[in-house]
Design a protein around this nucleic acid. Sequence first.
DNA 1: TATGAATGAGCGTTCATTCAT
DNA 2: TATGAATGAACGCTCATTCAT
Lengths: 192, 192, 192, 192
Amino acid sequence: MRVNKDFDKKEAIFEAMLELISKHGFHSSPMSEVAKQANVAAGTIYHYFKSKDELICALYLKIKSQSNEMLLKNDDPSKAFKDRFRQFYLQNFNYFTKNTKEFYFLEQFSSSPYINLVSKTELQALDQPIYDFLRKAVFTQVLRDISPKIMTSLVLGSSSALVKLQLSGDFLLTPSDLESAYITCWDGIKKQ
Amino acid sequence: MRVNKDFDKKEAIFEAMLELISKHGFHSSPMSEVAKQANVAAGTIYHYFKSKDELICALYLKIKSQSNEMLLKNDDPSKAFKDRFRQFYLQNFNYFTKNTKEFYFLEQFSSSPYINLVSKTELQALDQPIYDFLRKAVFTQVLRDISPKIMTSLVLGSSSALVKLQLSGDFLLTPSDLESAYITCWDGIKKQ
Amino acid sequence: MRVNKDFDKKEAIFEAMLELISKHGFHSSPMSEVAKQANVAAGTIYHYFKSKDELICALYLKIKSQSNEMLLKNDDPSKAFKDRFRQFYLQNFNYFTKNTKEFYFLEQFSSSPYINLVSKTELQALDQPIYDFLRKAVFTQVLRDISPKIMTSLVLGSSSALVKLQLSGDFLLTPSDLESAYITCWDGIKKQ
Amino acid sequence: MRVNKDFDKKEAIFEAMLELISKHGFHSSPMSEVAKQANVAAGTIYHYFKSKDELICALYLKIKSQSNEMLLKNDDPSKAFKDRFRQFYLQNFNYFTKNTKEFYFLEQFSSSPYINLVSKTELQALDQPIYDFLRKAVFTQVLRDISPKIMTSLVLGSSSALVKLQLSGDFLLTPSDLESAYITCWDGIKKQ
DNA sequence: TATGAATGAGCGTTCATTCAT
DNA sequence: TATGAATGAACGCTCATTCAT
């Protein structure tokens, strides 16, 4: 099937770029290498993407949306919010700790000027589920009364710092370390 | 004077590289442009640094050590730890919010494979003051009993996420927002 | 046709490099000039050769093997060895005297550290025909009983010195000069 | 003393350049490295030599004249010419076999376009002693009646080929090999 | 005379992109 | 659609040479 073939190639290109950038960074990930790893010709990439920048941006949106989907996948709105937050916090750690290529890529991209190439509204749309998740808890007075944007930043910031610590290899977090980290975060943001 | 001239050129090169990378990223900061902005010949850079990579790494160590020094500059050990923490937390925000080039550069560097080019012991030495600042508070039971490494990650992670939020332009934090953020962090990490 | 185009470009690059090096030496034969003379883009050279050094070495092996083939092309094993030797000796002179680019290039290469970049076994294989040509004559007691390696050196050394003399322009060898040179060499190496 | 100091520096520069070129070739012997090895500042070289090319040419003339002087140093005109020739031939081999830097440098220089930078008359003057040595023997009918220029070429060519063979490491010549080589050469050139 | 920091043209090489097939 | 040879601008870097000290 044509569609599947297309899908496969595009997917292979994405996968190759992800692998290369996560490992070597933007400036050591030439298109020729992407082509080689994706088993396509260099020119083929340009049938799917206008330019290297566009490919990288598309990859970012794809990975970002995939991961965000993952993070709330097991959310159960019928549970107590504290439990839902714990589930979310640990899920985040586990997901990126196991999908390191995705983590390294997202970190690099969002810390670099590349981030300015994607529209802010598109970015906000991607973070909307997490944002909403926290915002509702603010409105229902489960969480402190601070701007949901700030709250989202604080939670995600500390959470990804935790992933970075684990991946650095300097410190291996035990399950009980994780519980401590989660409760530290929770005690900070909960309605006092 | 020789020493001053050297200092000036090396400093000018550092400054030019910092400006370029913070604005355009590693791969859009050619040495030729660095030379131009630093008002030196291209070859001159190579009297001070063996390679582009070495220059970038040296710049990282310089900026990182300068900023870390700033963060605890006004620390007053005679005060209550909570106040000292507040001072540190706000100082961090203010410093990077005003020195955006430094912030963008540090973020990019530490999120990229470049970070692997500097020795871990050297990195740890740079973070030692902050690490010690928090560690002592853990030992004196002012803070929760969790690993100082984890605590450092959580605090710095949430703090730099806050800076990122401010610099993104999406949300301008008021002084009272900052107070909320600080107290959120504090309530999380303090001994319960 | 692909094959012919490849052949043409590679050949053109070889030809351009040969011309430049024979005329200006290694260090005054920039790749940009090679590209220009070969009517290809600079980058194209790197589809065919990994580096300048590799191109130069490949060129040496090509020229060396081509010339060695020439030298014994008209050898007629049914003739008396003395006649065969004369034919070989004069052929050598004539070939290099007419193909001066090849001569200058081979001389420069084999006198320079470049020679260490090609494997000795590969080099020996190229000289094998000439070596065998003389070795057999030693074994059949037509030539003096000295090591074929030494004999090969003596013969080729004096022969290429002759070419150098002619090409220097200081002295134009007549046919009878050549006969004298040949017989001088022959009288030295023949079984006394 | 000034003169001695000058002499020392110039000598040190010569020595450094000789060492570098013999080992790495012209294009891997930067002036900065010459300066370092000679223990002088880069600029100092330009007090003694106008340019790199001039330094290299001066070095050639110096080495060439030194070695040529060596080659006939022990010549004893009262002996039989055959013995004098043998002495010369072996001396040549021994000298270059022991002074390999000089040999490699001379070979590289005289095979490269550099040779065109020195005046032919100057070159001829340097080779005059050897030329005369053989010419007289031609005139006195000890040697074949062929042009002394050709004779010089043949002898020196085969002789330096022998040195090359030895230095290549492929074949270690014994004293008896040397005798064979000498007599081969002699039997070729002597009056038949 | 001696220094060595500074220069900048020019080098070898890379790589995003194109286009004839 | 897919290819990959070809392009050439631009890169990081070198190095012969200069000149203020």
